[in-house]
Computed example of a mutant assay.
Amino acid sequence: MSLETVIQENTNALRDLIAAIANGIPTTSAQVAAVATQAAEKVEAKAEKKSAQAEKPASSESGATPQTATETAAPAVVLDYEAIKKPFLSLVNKKGRDAAAALLNQFGVDAGKGGKLSDIPADKYADVLAAIETAGA
């Protein structure tokens, strides 16, 4: 399986997740996580199916197969900055700057010293969304 195929499958999984969120289906972080897990499972199942099909005609290329299996087992839905920006701005509008500063402080960003949402590492974005939800945005 090529890298382009894996990227396309991840893109499709993200589109499915965005569509589900746009329809108002996931309303809690647990529901978002469930949708993300479900999308990752779909991608993994498709990748395994394609990998199995690719192994049959190309049995002499066994060196490349374990690497692609490892690559396809790892994809997970990763949130980007835009995914947390809108809910964060909603929090600012509803609860004010103090609530936003408190949320940033939870993730080691000092808003009083010019810290901003983009200073939070991308691997913490799921936690940021959960904190925004808890804060009442």
Rank of each mutant, 00 (worst) to 15 (best):
M1A: 11
S2T: 15
S2M: 13
S2N: 11
L3M: 14
E4G: 10
E4Q: 06
T5N: 13
V6M: 15
N10A: 12
T11Q: 05
R15I: 13
R15N: 09
L17Y: 05
L17P: 01
I18Y: 09
A19P: 00
I21A: 02
N23A: 08
G24C: 01
G24R: 03
G24I: 00
T27D: 00
T28G: 00
Q31L: 09
Q31V: 06
Q31N: 05
V32K: 06
A34S: 09
V35E: 10
A36S: 13
T37S: 11
A40G: 03
E41D: 14
V43C: 02
V43T: 10
V43A: 07
E44H: 15
K46Y: 00
K46Q: 06
E48G: 01
E48W: 12
K49R: 14
K49Y: 05
Q53S: 10
A54H: 08
E55D: 12
P57T: 03
A58E: 04
S59E: 04
S60I: 09
S60M: 07
S62V: 12
G63H: 01
A64V: 10
T65L: 15
P66C: 04
P66T: 02
Q67G: 01
T68I: 12
T68L: 13
A69H: 14
T70C: 05
E71W: 14
A74R: 14
A76F: 04
V78P: 02
A83F: 09
A83C: 07
P87K: 02
L91Y: 00
K94Y: 00
G96T: 08
R97A: 11
D98G: 09
A99F: 07
A99W: 05
A101C: 06
L103G: 00
L104Q: 02
N105M: 14
N105F: 12
G108Y: 04
V109R: 03
D110S: 11
A111V: 13
G115L: 13
G115A: 06
L117W: 07
L117G: 04
S118Y: 13
D119W: 11
D119F: 06
D123V: 12
Y125K: 12
V128D: 02
L129E: 02
A130G: 01
E133G: 15
E133F: 13
A135P: 01
G136F: 08
G136S: 04
A137V: 05
